[in-house]
Design a protein around this nucleic acid. Structure first.
Length: 157
DNA sequence: GCCAACGTTGGC
DNA sequence: GCCAACGTTGGC
């Protein structure tokens, strides 16, 4: 099983929103690297740290799980969507996504500043300057460490 | 709101 | 296929 980190702006879709709906298609990803992770490298059951970006403070707020297989992001064909992509061919969709389900919410946010300050998380991508991917892989040890910092037991895949 | 960093686009 | 211009991300 692999581990991931998924970013979301809480004003748009927060960990509380995921808890409320239970399961959510991760639509609107328009970056090829992030798409490739979802399409090629994720498997059902993989766990992801849910991260709030553009928040005060930004940081890790919970855990989600990959559900099911990759499939075309419907918003790319929706003319009214801000994610509409006129260049995507319905016969060969450019953007694929996965669904994520709620696993747990941390008792309190683990702020980015704390992640950066933690020696054991050295090299974790989200703490590195200039890394703007909205989906990125996380090492198993880093995943467990973030859960420990949050005061929760790392869930099993 | 600023701006550094990075990805994408498009002219050539 | 280079690279300048532009748009976006996201911390601060």
């Amino acid at each position: 099983m692999r581990h991931w980190l998924i970013k979301s702006e809480p004003d748009v879709f927060s960990i509380d929103d995921l808890e409320a709906v239970g399961r959510e298609p991760w639509d609107g990803i328009r970056n090829y690297q992030a798409r490739n992770f979802m399409r090629d490298d994720m498997e059902a059951g993989d766990l992801a740290i849910f991260y709030h970006s553009n928040a005060k403070p930004p940081g890790a707020v919970g855990v989600a799980r990959v559900v099911g297989d990759a499939y075309p992001d419907p918003s790319q064909f929706d003319r009214k969507s801000k994610y509409y992509d006129a260049k995507s061919d319905p016969d060969a969709p450019r953007w694929l996504l996965r669904d994520f389900e709620f696993v747990l919410k941390f008792p309190a946010i683990v702020p980015l500043a704390d992640l950066k300050a933690e020696k054991a998380l050295e090299g974790m991508q989200v703490t590195q300057r200039g890394v703007r991917l909205s989906i990125m892989p996380v090492e198993p040890g880093h995943f467990r460490k973030v859960c420990a910092m949050a005061g929760v037991k790392a869930p099993k895949g």
